[in-house]
């Protein structure tokens, strides 16, 4: 039963990732006074892309075609780390947050290689900018997670969630406040949302992720797009699991599960609204302002770690 639920929640994270993306776009459209596309549009886009053919440059090597597959595989594996409906996950009981962070880095590394293999100018440009953002996001990501793990005295995600579930929300420490702020900033940078990157841009001066995937097409592009949707979903689920897991099922009853699903859906919806509001109200940063943005995340996460020792 437990194993089944582990599998179901991982599959849900993967399968519903495009929906979350669609919902965010829809809310964004409404805020901007537009009608907006259906929330299911990302699925039809994926179906369209999977039906198309893969265009491969003659100079590219096998890395060009391998990188989307690997990116997708490790992102799905990362989804298996996150407790969603109960305080356990397929890999989340054995693997810890360091493994999770490095799995995401794995995908990013191959995405960068695939971009450079395209042989055009845009791929290199995107890879270069992605290197900037991801390098600077790495330290605050791990430090913020470290702070939470130190407070919970356990490094596996399932363990942290289990610990948090037993705490009173109103008595969570300043460490959590600092860590959630840092992690939210990092999540924005990692998933390529405004103000760090714009997921809808096609202007060479501004794009990071879009220029990396510019040479990919067909199923390869579909895998990349799906993977980045999963990554967004994983980041949302991670924020929920670490900082607001209450409502997760503690026993395997139908009522408990129904509540867990409903509460989780509510939390995702709330975060989607926050994301849409932020994206609609903030302008994209100039690229060389991104280090400052991540510098704030870094400072917050360092403070969080310092506070774990000071406040115990």
């Amino acid at each position: 039963m437990k194993l089944l639920l582990d599998i179901v929640q991982a599959v849900l994270l993967v399968a519903l990732a495009p929906l979350v993306r669609g919902i965010v776009s829809r809310i964004k459209a409404r805020i901007q006074n537009r009608q907006g596309a259906s929330v299911w549009r990302p699925y039809s886009e994926l179906r369209k892309l999977f039906a198309k053919e893969d265009l491969v440059p003659p100079t590219a090597s096998f890395v060009f075609r391998l990188s989307p597959v690997l990116l997708f595989a490790v992102t799905v594996a990362a989804a298996a780390f996150i407790p969603v409906l109960h305080a356990s996950a397929l890999l989340g009981t054995m693997g810890d947050f360091i493994l999770l962070a490095y799995l995401l880095a794995f995908g990013r590394f191959f995405l960068m290689l695939g971009a450079m293999d395209g042989g055009g100018a845009f791929g290199g440009m995107g890879a270069s900018r992605e290197a900037l953002v991801s390098t600077l996001a790495e330290a605050p990501l791990l430090l913020a997670l470290t702070a939470v793990a130190v407070v919970a005295r356990i490094a596996t995600l399932a363990g942290i969630v289990q610990w948090t579930l037993q705490q009173d929300f109103f008595r969570l420490s300043a460490v959590h406040a600092l860590a959630v702020a840092a992690l939210a900033l990092v999540a924005i940078a990692e998933t390529g949302r405004i103000p760090v990157d714009n997921p809808t841009t096609h202007l060479e001066l501004t794009m990071i992720h879009e220029s990396m995937v510019l040479e990919h097409s067909g199923p390869s592009l579909a895998l990349i797009e799906w993977a980045s949707a999963i990554k967004l979903n994983v980041m949302i689920a991670l924020l929920i699991a670490l900082f607001a897991p209450w409502g997760m099922a503690t026993a395997f009853t139908a009522a408990g599960l129904a509540i867990a699903i409903a509460v989780y859906a509510l939390k995702v919806a709330a975060l989607a609204v926050v994301l849409a509001v932020v994206e609609s109200s903030v302008a994209k940063l100039r690229m060389y302002m991104v280090p400052d943005f991540l510098g704030v995340a870094c400072a917050l996460s360092i403070l969080a770690v310092v506070f774990t020792a000071v406040m115990r």
Binding site: A101, L132, E138, A139
Partner: peptide, 26 residues
Amino acid sequence: AGVLALIGGVAAACFAKLYGVVFLSR
């Protein structure tokens, strides 16, 4: 641990550059 993460991040950029420029594309 944060320092180690920073090192890992820069190393990823560094070796993406090495491999991408030397072995990939034209």
